[in-house]
Design a binder for these strands. Structure first.
Lengths: 101, 101
DNA sequence: GGTGTTGTTCGAAAGTTGTCGAACAAGGGT
DNA sequence: ACCCTTGTTCGACAACTTTCGAACAACACC
């Protein structure tokens, strides 16, 4: 089955925000923003692979990432341009390094 | 008891995003961004007053709004400057009118 | 004091989410 | 063919969210 990667315009804002409103997922997005394309397995943030797979699905279905198969792996990348076009400044605001709490 | 209005720097990004990731709350924020200070009761988005009170609490505790008493009412306002300082572009990105889905 | 308006808090119900282990599927090696 | 690696899916469970009505608190006004 083809992965479900909706047009960003078809995803409600609240779904995009909800996708970003999780610590694990935010770390994944941060890693993708810095490192470009990466395999699912490279996101080891202390959760099981089932959980990781779930989070990647949430990001994908929120229109934030794309996934393509590559051998036994799957490579994930951020849909940066599209997100920036529809929500200019959002990723910058969310991912920017911030003064410590 | 004084309303709990944390310093924005003390609120995790994910909590801010989660606060915005709800339809009712986003409508409230939108109304505040356009109309300035407003009484709680002015946000009639088809939910009961108990629910409305809950959502305003979430926004307040995410550091997004301030509330002050005024007679029998409570006036709510967006902490726009502070939010813009800590998350430059976030509110603009989220509240901007968007091309229809 | 009593009455009405405005909000908050409580308790409960329904739904959603994050998490896991186990089972499964698809590829690449040897 | 066999196994190992990499991910996805399933079923379950706990925790959190959204929502409501009802009860309560605070204030204003007659």
């Amino acid at each position: 089955m083809e992965p479900h990667e909706p047009d960003l315009a078809a995803v409600p804002v609240t779904a995009v925000l909800a996708a970003l409103a999780d610590d694990v997922r935010l770390q994944i997005v941060r890693a993708l923003a810095e490192g470009g394309e990466a395999a699912c397995g490279s996101f080891d943030f202390g959760v099981s692979k089932a959980t990781r797979s779930h989070h990647l699905k949430v990001l994908r279905e929120a229109g934030l990432t794309r996934t393509r198969a590559a051998g036994t792996s799957r490579l994930v990348r951020l849909r940066r341009d599209e997100v920036d076009q529809r929500y200019p400044g959002l990723l910058d605001a969310v991912l920017a390094p911030r003064p410590p709490a």
